[in-house]
Amino acid sequence: MSRAEAASPEETVPRAEAVRGVSPLWTFGLLRSELLTTFRRWRTLALLAVLAAVPILVGIAVKIETGDGSSAGPGEGGGPAFISQITNNGLFLVFTALAATLPFFLPMSIGVVAGDAIAGEANAGTLRYLLVAPAGRTRLLLTKYATVMVFCLVATLVVAVSALTVGAILFPLGDLTTISGTRISFADGLGRALLIALVVAASLMGVAALGLFVSTLTNSGIAAMATTVGLLITVQILDQIPQLHALQPYFFSHYWLSFADLMRDPVYWDDLTKNLGLQALYAAVFGSAAWARFTAKDITA
């Protein structure tokens, strides 16, 4: 893994300082070095590039398809949410892109980053060195989780910003119509887009905690990533089976698309709060499970 070479110059500095004593600031140093390691990795950059490419592809496809003046999407309203509105207002590309990436691309990249968080270190043989520093396992785990959450936010914002840029270049902007048929100003729409991006990032909290827990179970980074992504796909499939409707409200992906409720006027909060509550529950359950596992684990690598 390239991690060791890439990380060592940044990591040695804060860790050397830390020997003098544990201060709260030190946690930020750890977080900063974790963030730098994560975001300097080619793998992370490639994931972000793929995410940025999705809105570009959607935007160009819609532009080509509607070049002759017809409206986007099949007349009966198929395709991702909001796609029929893109030609009228580029801002809708943000919502369409998020709706298109949320079921798979976003959680998959979160699964890769979260699954790699602990297991990847163990695999590369760097985990024990991280623990030599007086950080404590709990603090290291929290830092790892915080890093994954920052990645969630960055990944979502990459999609949103890329979509907004493409939307602004290819399509007109301006006042927009909410899905309830009322009109809001462009500034209001932009605010809602930002809010939606935040909600989407928060929707990934559950997957992030799940990935981190899986990551503490194994010493193989690849195995942890594959397990997390596999679980993600399994849950998405189970969420489609009507016979399981009694269980479905407890699947972490069940309320993901509720972010579209922010585009109603007035906003319909029921499913949004259910989604956020469910994500918090997943974060608490799998976060504490990861803590129980990680703090009790023998670090052999």
Binding site: V285, S288, A292, R293, A296
Partner: peptide, 16 residues
């Protein structure tokens, strides 16, 4: 003592 740590996630599930 290690096993006791798993009480935490179980308790979280229970409370939920």
């Amino acid at each position: 003592r290690k096993a006791a740590r798993y009480v935490v996630p179980v308790a979280v599930v229970g409370v939920a």
